[in-house]
Simulated assay, not measured.
Amino acid sequence: MRLILLGPPGAGKGTQSSRLEQKYGIPQLSTGDMLRAAVKAGTPIGLQAKAVMESGGLVSDEIVVGIIEGRIAEPDCAKGFILDGFPRTVAQAKALDAMLKRHHKELDAVIELVVDDQILLSRIENRAKETVAAGGAVRADDNPESFKKRLAQYHELTAPVSDYYRSVGELRTVDGMAAIDAVTAEIDAILGK
């Protein structure tokens, strides 16, 4: 089962990824975690990434896809994987497709959790207020202003990925505003087809 979960920050991708990991016995792959592991391990592609990061640059799509390529060759990905937060751009989506094709693999599903931005923002604001009221510190990514910036960046750069997968007939959408169990059931129904 090879899956991509799409959706803006706060849509519930992490929650659903955890459930899918447990149900199917496949890992959720974080590009950030994979990048750090490749750098730490000193792999050839990790050394390339390290050089780019140390110079203050952004790691290229080619390097990121190379890291994913190495990661999905590992034994725990034999039954599949979940990509959450990747691809972030149409160029990355096309590079991922080409890499999978080289390995005679294809995606089983690309699922987008569709949510209402205003309700997401309200949730973040409420969570921040509740944290402060309980005497806690608000996480940086729970700050409404930071969240608005992340949401705007998502719409500018990542939302076109949905259009790309829709154009090639792979995108399936799920109402991310539904209750968590209902979202899980809708994803299960898609994967059962």
Rank of each mutant, 00 (worst) to 15 (best):
R2A: 12
R2V: 08
I4W: 02
P8A: 09
P9T: 06
G12L: 10
K13I: 00
Q16H: 03
Q16K: 05
S17L: 07
S17N: 11
S17P: 05
S18K: 13
R19A: 12
L20P: 02
L20K: 04
E21P: 04
E21G: 06
Q22V: 07
I26A: 14
P27N: 10
L29F: 01
S30I: 03
S30K: 01
S30M: 05
T31R: 02
G32F: 04
G32Y: 03
G32S: 05
M34P: 01
M34S: 05
L35F: 03
A37P: 14
A38D: 02
V39R: 09
K40P: 07
K40G: 13
A41E: 15
T43F: 14
T43I: 13
P44E: 09
G46T: 03
G46R: 05
G46P: 00
K50N: 06
K50Q: 15
A51C: 08
V52W: 03
V52E: 07
E54D: 15
S55D: 09
L58S: 05
L58A: 06
L58E: 04
L58C: 06
V59C: 01
E62P: 10
I63G: 05
V65K: 02
G66W: 02
E69L: 04
G70Q: 12
A73T: 14
D76R: 08
D76W: 04
A78W: 03
K79R: 15
I82K: 08
L83Y: 01
L83P: 09
L83K: 00
L83W: 04
D84F: 02
F86S: 04
R88L: 03
R88I: 01
T89N: 06
Q92Y: 04
L96F: 01
L96I: 02
D97N: 02
A98D: 10
M99G: 01
L100E: 04
K101C: 00
H103M: 07
H103R: 10
K105N: 02
L107Y: 06
A109N: 11
V110L: 10
I111R: 12
V114D: 08
V115M: 05
V115W: 03
D117S: 13
D117M: 11
Q118S: 09
I119T: 12
I119E: 11
E125N: 12
N126H: 15
N126V: 08
R127Y: 07
K129E: 15
V132C: 09
V132M: 11
A134T: 09
G135M: 06
G135I: 12
A137T: 15
R139I: 09
R139F: 07
A140D: 13
N143M: 09
P144R: 05
E145M: 13
E145I: 14
S146D: 06
S146Q: 10
F147W: 08
F147R: 05
F147P: 06
K148Y: 07
L151Q: 04
A152M: 03
Q153T: 10
H155F: 09
E156H: 14
P160K: 00
S162V: 03
S162W: 01
S162E: 04
S162F: 01
D163Y: 05
Y164G: 00
Y164M: 02
G169C: 04
E170P: 03
E170Y: 15
E170W: 15
L171P: 15
R172F: 15
T173V: 14
D175H: 11
D175C: 10
M177C: 08
A178V: 00
A179V: 13
I180S: 12
I180Q: 11
D181Q: 12
A182G: 01
A185W: 11
D188R: 15
L191T: 13
K193Y: 11
